[in-house]
């Protein structure tokens, strides 16, 4: 390679490495705030002030969903397998909401330590399969 091209190669490489390192450092610093939601244990540890709007995510605990009979109100618990958090919500749920599935909620913590959600998003996992396969998998369990 002739010296001029070699020099340009070094310039290109250093531009690439420079921006890569800078961007990664910035993201390292911002890492916590890039997370879309907190886990229940983070929320309980952080003692978040009542009334601050936050997002929390976790898995809906099996058997914890309780629906009121004549309204859209419901309550359930979410867990990160360390701590549980009680959720209250009134409104329409996304199709994928179910027990033992991930959810991301937006809302506030009230003085009793109950999370009052006003938005429920269902998290989907990366697994796709036909219904028959899901059935046999369940039977094997």
């Amino acid at each position: 390679m002739n010296p001029l091209r070699k020099q340009r190669l070094y310039v290109v490489l250093s531009i690439f490495l420079g921006t890569a390192i800078a961007v990664l450092l910035v993201f390292q610093g911002l890492s916590k705030s890039i997370n879309l939601f907190y886990s229940p244990s983070e929320i309980l540890k952080a003692q978040i002030e009542a009334g601050t709007e936050i997002r929390v995510g976790g898995m809906v605990k099996k058997g914890s969903v309780y629906r009121e009979t004549n309204s859209l109100k419901l309550s359930f618990e979410i867990t990160d397998f360390e701590e549980d958090l009680v959720i209250e919500y009134e409104g329409i749920l996304p199709d994928l909401f179910s027990e033992e599935a991930g959810v991301v909620l937006k809302g506030t913590i009230n003085s009793k330590g109950v999370f009052v959600a006003h938005e429920v998003l269902a998290k989907h996992d990366e697994n796709y399969m036909p219904p028959e396969v899901a059935k046999t998998l369940k039977q094997k369990k």
């Binding site: 997370n35 991301v104 990366e126």
Partner: peptide, 23 residues
């Protein structure tokens, strides 16, 4: 790296896919 609403990759060259072969 981060907590996201988007799920991890289903389709990747390096690991076996997390969907059945007919999909």
């Amino acid at each position: 790296w981060w907590q996201t609403l988007h799920q991890p990759s289903t389709f990747s060259i390096t690991s076996s896919p997390s969907m059945t072969s007919d999909m």
